[in-house]
C-alpha cells in the first residue's frame, strides 16, 4: 500500500527538486574549460560525508534538474539531465538552452538508465537528502530500475542539510572542482544582494521579536506542517531570528512534515503562515477558507497573514536573495499578535 503522506509530499517534491537556479544563467552556458577539466586526480566530499575520488576530473556529468541548473550557472554543462516533470515546465530548466543535453527522465522516480549508460557518464550529481539517506532520483519509492543509475558512475551531491548557504557554496565548490571559473560578476553581485537581503531580514525579525511563523501546506485531505529540522531554508530563517515553530510530532516515516487531519487544523496558531511556495497562489488562502470549514480556525489564515515559503527548492544565492526580499516585506507587514 502506498503511503499517501509520502505521495502528497512527492508531488510537492517533484516541484521542489527543480532547484531553480535561474539567476545569472541566461547568457553563460558556455562549455566548461576542457583543458582544466582534463587534469586530475579529482576528489569531492559529498553530502553524506563520503569522499569521492577519480583519476581525472569528471567531464561527462549526468545531473538532476535543479542541480544541473546550478552547474550550468557556473558554466558546467551536463551531458544528461533527469527531471521530475517535463523540462518545458520544470522551473529550473524551462528557460535554459538544453541543446546537446540528453533528457533522461521527465517524471519523478523514472530515469532511462539504458540511455544514461549510452552517455558513458563519469559523474552523477544529485542533492543528498539526510532524512531519507538518499540522493535525488534514488529515494525510496522510485522505480527500482531507476536506482541502477548509481551503478554507472560515482554519485555526489550537496546535502539538503543545515542551510541553503551550504547548498549554494557546495555547488559552487563542486563546479570549481570540475574546472569552472566562478568569477562571473553576476555571481558576485548575487552574493552581495543575498548579504543585503539577510541584513534586512534580520532587522525585520528583530523589530518583531514575538512574531511566530509556521511552514504549512494544506491539501484537500490533510494539513501538513513543515518540520524545520529537514528544511534548510526554515533553519536559516530560525537562525536569522524568525520563530518558525517546530511541530511536536513529525510523521515517523516521513519526518519532513507533521500531518494533521482537518479536524485538528488549528493545532498550531502562528502569527504568519509560510505557505509551501511550490503550490502557492495569492487566491489559495481564500479558497481554502471557503472549502475547508476549519482552515480559518487558524487565526493567521483568517486574518490573511500568509506568504509564500521557498520550500525545498533553493540552490543559489540569487534565488535565496529574491525570496528573502519578499519574506522581509511580509514580516514587516505582519502582526505579531494574531496567533497564540
Amino acid at each position: 500500500m502506498e503511503n499517501p503522506h509520502m505521495q502528497t509530499w512527492r508531488s510537492v517534491l517533484a516541484v521542489a527538486t527543480l532547484g531553480a537556479v535561474l539567476a545569472g544563467c541566461g547568457s553563460n552556458d558556455a562549455p566548461a574549460d576542457e583543458t582544466a577539466a582534463a587534469s586530475g586526480p579529482w576528489s569531492f566530499t559529498s553530502g553524506n560525508g563520503d569522499v569521492v575520488k577519480a583519476d581525472k576530473t569528471p567531464s561527462r556529468i549526468i545531473a538532476h534538474a535543479g542541480e544541473a541548473a546550478a552547474l550550468i550557472s557556473f558554466g558546467i554543462k551536463p551531458v544528461g539531465i533527469y527531471a521530475d516533470e517535463p523540462v518545458k515546465t520544470d522551473l529550473n530548466l524551462k528557460d535554459l538552452d538544453l541543446t546537446g543535453i540528453t533528457i533522461l527522465g521527465e517524471e519523478w522516480g523514472k530515469i532511462d538508465v539504458e540511455k544514461a549508460a549510452s552517455l558513458a557518464p563519469d559523474l552523477i550529481v544529485g542533492d543528498w537528502w539526510p532524512a531519507e539517506k538518499a540522493y535525488s532520483g534514488l529515494e525510496e519509492g522510485v522505480d527500482e530500475k531507476s536506482k541502477k543509475l548509481a551503478e554507472l558512475a560515482p554519485i555526489v551531491g550537496v546535502s539538503q542539510g543545515e542551510s541553503i548557504v551550504d547548498l549554494a557554496e557546495g555547488y559552487e565548490a563542486l563546479a570549481t572542482s570540475l574546472g569552472a571559473k566562478v568569477d562571473d560578476p553576476q555571481i558576485a553581485a548575487n552574493k552581495k544582494r543575498f548579504e543585503t537581503a539577510v541584513t534586512a531580514f534580520k532587522a525585520a525579525t528583530a523589530a518583531k521579536p514575538n512574531l511566530t511563523a509556521a511552514g504549512m501546506s494544506p491539501t484537500d485531505e490533510k494539513v501538513y506542517v513543515a518540520n524545520p529540522k529537514y528544511a534548510p531554508e526554515l533553519l536559516d530563517f530560525q537562525r536569522w531570528g524568525l520563530k518558525v515553530l517546530d511541530p511536536a510530532a513529525p510523521d515517523k516515516d516521513f519526518p519532513y512534515w507533521e500531518t494533521l487531519s482537518w479536524e485538528n487544523a488549528d493545532k498550531y496558531q502562528p502569527d504568519l503562515i509560510l505557505w509551501d511556495g511550490r503550490a502557492y497562489k495569492d487566491t489559495l488562502n481564500a479558497e481554502f477558507g471557503k472549502k475547508q470549514p476549519t482552515w480559518f480556525e487558524i487565526k493567521a489564515a483568517k486574518a490573511g497573514a500568509v506568504t509564500a515559503w521557498p520550500a525545498y527548492w533553493l540552490h543559489t544565492y540569487g534565488d535565496f536573495a529574491t525570496e528573502l526580499e519578499k519574506l522581509t516585506t511580509a514580516i514587516n507587514g505582519a502582526d505579531e499578535n494574531i496567533g497564540n
Partner: peptide, 13 residues
C-alpha cells in the same frame, strides 16, 4: 497520467 505527474498525484489520492 504517465505524462502528467500532477494529474497522477491528484488521481492517486
Amino acid at each position: 497520467v504517465m505524462t502528467n505527474i500532477d494529474a497522477l498525484n491528484e488521481l492517486r489520492f
